[in-house]
Nucleic acid binder design. Sequence first.
DNA 1: CTCTAAAGTTACAGACCGGTAACACCCTAG
DNA 2: CTAGGGTGTTACCGGTCTGTAACTTTAGAG
Lengths: 193, 193
Amino acid sequence: MTDGVVERVRPRDRILETARDMFHKHGIRGVGIDAITEAAGTNKMTLYRHFESKDDLIIECLRATACSANAMWEKFEAENPGDKLAQLHAWVRMAADCLMSDRRGCDMANAAIELSEADHPARQVIKELKEAQRERLVSLCRDAGIGQAELLADTLSLLLEGARVSLQSVGAEGPSAQFVRMAEGLITSFRAR
Amino acid sequence: MTDGVVERVRPRDRILETARDMFHKHGIRGVGIDAITEAAGTNKMTLYRHFESKDDLIIECLRATACSANAMWEKFEAENPGDKLAQLHAWVRMAADCLMSDRRGCDMANAAIELSEADHPARQVIKELKEAQRERLVSLCRDAGIGQAELLADTLSLLLEGARVSLQSVGAEGPSAQFVRMAEGLITSFRAR
DNA sequence: CTCTAAAGTTACAGACCGGTAACACCCTAG
DNA sequence: CTAGGGTGTTACCGGTCTGTAACTTTAGAG
């Protein structure tokens, strides 16, 4: 194993990738195990050999999503090394691209809404991952020299979260269309203080 | 019928009210017809005599929610007749109360996320009702003498929507805790332009 | 009181769900 | 070649879901 050469994608990764995509598109409660395994070109037994339960699979999907998000943060730093303000603008641009290219919003927020049970095992994971993202944005704002860094970061967070939800309920012509203007205006306003 | 005196609550209304409450607390896909009828003190047949299907019931629940929201707008006008700026501040206060007293957010937004099928019959209803609410807030901002009324209204909309979602994913100590500060700051800022 | 419409009861259909058991297969490391 | 772990196949369990049929009971209008 770990041959190094080409190496077909292992079932576990295929399942994880397929599940992420289907959970994102149709919601967690809207996709069954059978549908996932079939789309992943495998079967139910193999899935349950790699994941304890559907809940476990859900959690792994969320972790994978957080991992992708982290990769984006590293891209900000790589493309604008040291220039934290430029990275903040890059964050806004990335968020806007996200809003335009995808109508189904944030997987974690959607999961938090779908998994309404207060003690669902995924809830704790969602909270942790969201808090980590919040901390990153706060740090970015602070390092960009913004005075009220926490307040700006939280405002931008809520704006994006709201835009992603509004996109799903009102559509692309709704309030979310103004996201960039709002975000850039806020940054300008906070910089002037 | 329509006796005028006391009159027990009719099954249809009991079902509607119970369904609204349960959909809100546990999500649409998380509540079954049996659970609703049992909690409403009635039975499945009676439900299906009053509502064509679960989807129909969902839509009626959303309409009822929108109706409650309208009642709140009228309260704003009644308590601050003519004073549109005071009504805008009342809106902020109401939103904040909503955030503190309830952790499950907006029924329409939650429904839009849960009902991921792009052609679900409830989606059109959600869009219409959300657009109506947007129009009300825009009008309020305009009548309050705000220059860029649309932009302020849309920003406040997204902030509230985001706060409601963030409340569910990060919790009450997250960014949503700063909602009032953000909203009031925005109003002040827009008034100064 | 009687007649009728609304509401309750029971049973069921048909589909889907998450999860498991038992067994056959194949591919590769040794 | 061989042994064994990962994978595929089939069948199944018990539960839940929306929705319907047929029948009985109740309550209010005249």
